[in-house]
Design a binder for these strands. Structure first.
Length: 470
RNA sequence: GCCCCCAUCGUCUAGUGGCCUAGGACACCACCCUUUCAAGGUGGCGGCACGGGUUCGAAUCCCGUUGGGGGUGCCA
């Protein structure tokens, strides 16, 4: 049976799904698709109190949103690392039996004390030749061989590590449970992984894992360490400080296609002068050899720009469909039963070119569904500061009341007449009307808005404004 | 401290020794369009960190300096 490469994505469920993880997953996925391989999802839930079951579902859902889904013929999993604990321990004991690992009874504190006493950092190999048997509280450490470990990395090239600089690391904890380094390698072997594509932060772990692969009797997989994503301070994106949750972006109305496209341009770029390209083109062109070596800043502003482009690329129907979530009762600022799909449809095209994320949509049309507009005080003050404001509003009420056909062109003509008579510009005179009716100084084109709103409500709001101005 | 990685406009990138007077995108600025705001169009600002080599020729190769980043757990 000849089969393609087997990639894998192995997140640990310790919080919301991170955009950095999403990018790594996408890299693996693109490669899997292009090379006709398999993408294995493995949840690394090995003990650790930080793991929560709900995060696991979050990862699965977020990946599916990005297009990496269970059910696709090239998707395999999810597997759970904790299910393989027995195999991890078995592998560790094999290494012990072969003399490639040994037990040590030093506590972390004792290791620390010895390090301070000797002036050297880390574990000094104290128990290497003490011939300790397994026992409670004893950890199993890997006996790092002498020599040099050369890692062949698809994005970095050849990276050399002097084994003498690598301490005898722990394989099994004092309580007998396996550590990440070991579990990760054993699982990759069990799952016949051929390519390990992960974030650069794992590069220092790689020589250790490569030694483990060899000690366990298999040739190491092909490695590739992609640069990390950083914040404006050029620090690795962190869950605590930065806005990194994929779920949150999704909630705010970032489109999956925009997120995917943007993430792929971090550390890499499609050929040609356009960065906005369909996923299929990314699959066709993406190569690890072309991935940049330096960290990339996750620029939300640029993500928003991408998203705006994707929104504008949609048909009106698609846009309306995509807005369903932010317009729904729970998310919207208006009472559930006052939403009118027909009115939104009438405004949709005008809204579409004015938003960068779907979450911006409600504020553009809320005046249509709210009983009274939420008036922005600053906007109101500015729009009504001129002495012509009040008389103009009065005059407008009278004119609008007698308009024969309540349509945008008619409304525009009507206001234009009033405006010219006063020697003003439409840009000026529309301001108090806009604020009076919609509550805001900016929004979709005014006359179209009024047309959709209807004569009765428009006049009522204008009269309220006149009254308010005293 | 030790180990490792990295270095093109503010940001993301193209660039793999001559096609570079370094291209595009986001942001920014100006103008056009215009009923606000957008969108769209046009133009502009702006970069190969520094110093040595190698070469007829270096953003591209080598060395060093400086500056960033990552790792250094009985976390993953």
């Amino acid at each position: 049976m000849s089969q393609g490469p087997r990639y894998r994505f192995a997140p640990s469920p310790t919080g919301f799904f991170h955009v950095g993880g999403a990018r790594t997953a996408l890299y693996n996925w693109a490669l899997t698709l292009r090379e006709g391989g398999v993408f294995v999802l493995r949840i690394e839930d090995t003990d650790e109190s930080r793991n929560q079951p709900e995060w696991t579902q979050g990862i699965i859902d977020a990946l599916a949103w990005l297009g990496i889904e269970k059910g696709h013929p090239q998707f395999e999993g999810p597997y759970f690392q904790s299910d393989n604990a027995a195999a991890h321990v078995e592998a560790a004991m094999r290494l012990y039996a072969e003399g490639k690992a040994y037990f040590c009874d030093l506590t972390p504190e004792q290791v620390q004390e010895r390090a301070i006493a000797s002036g050297k950092q880390g574990y000094d190999g104290f128990s290497r030749d003490r011939g300790l048997e397994p026992g409670p509280g004893r950890v199993l450490r890997f006996r790092v061989p002498a020599g040099e470990t050369i890692v062949h990395d698809l994005v970095r090239g050849e990276v050399r590590f002097e084994n003498a600089t690598i301490e005898d690391f722990v394989l099994l904890r004092g309580n007998g449970s396996p550590m990440f380094l070991l579990a990760n390698v054993v699982d990759d072997q069990l799952m016949s992984i051929t390519h390990v594509v992960r974030a650069e932060e794992h590069l220092p772990n790689t020589p250790k894992q490569q030694m483990l692969w060899e000690a366990l009797g298999s040739p190491a997989p092909t490695w590739a360490h992609v640069p990390v994503l950083v914040n404006e301070q050029r620090k690795k994106l962190s869950k605590r400080r930065d806005k990194v949750a994929v779920e949150q972006y999704r909630e705010e109305g970032i489109l999956a296609a925009a997120m995917v496209n943007y993430l792929m341009t971090l550390g890499w770029a499609p050929h040609g002068d356009t960065e906005i390209v369909p996923w299929q083109r990314i699959v066709d062109e993406f190569r690890l050899e072309d991935v940049n070596h330096s960290p990339a800043f996750f620029d939300i502003q640029k993500l928003l720009a991408f998203n705006g482009e994707y929104i504008r690329k949609m048909t009106v129907d698609e846009f309306i469909e995509a807005c369903a979530h932010v317009l729904s009762a729970a998310a919207a600022p208006w009472p559930a039963d006052s939403f009118d799909p027909a009115k939104f449809r009438a405004m949709a095209e005008l809204v579409q070119t004015r938003v960068q994320v779907l979450a911006d949509v409600p504020s553009m049309v809320d005046f249509l569904f709210l009983d009274a507009p939420t008036v922005d005080d600053t906007a109101w003050a500015k729009a009504t500061k001129d002495d012509w404001a009040a008389p103009l509003l009065n005059e407008t009420v009278a004119a609008f009341a007698t308009i024969v056909e309540w349509s945008a062109p008619e409304l525009k003509a009507s206001l234009e007449a009033i405006t010219e008579a006063r020697g003003l510009k439409l840009g000026k005179t529309q301001a108090p009307i806009r604020v009076a009716v919609t509550g805001r100084s900016v929004g979709p084109p005014l006359f179209e808005s009024l047309e959709v709103l209807g004569r009765d409500v428009t006049l009522r709001r204008l009269r309220d404004a006149v009254a308010r101005l005293g």
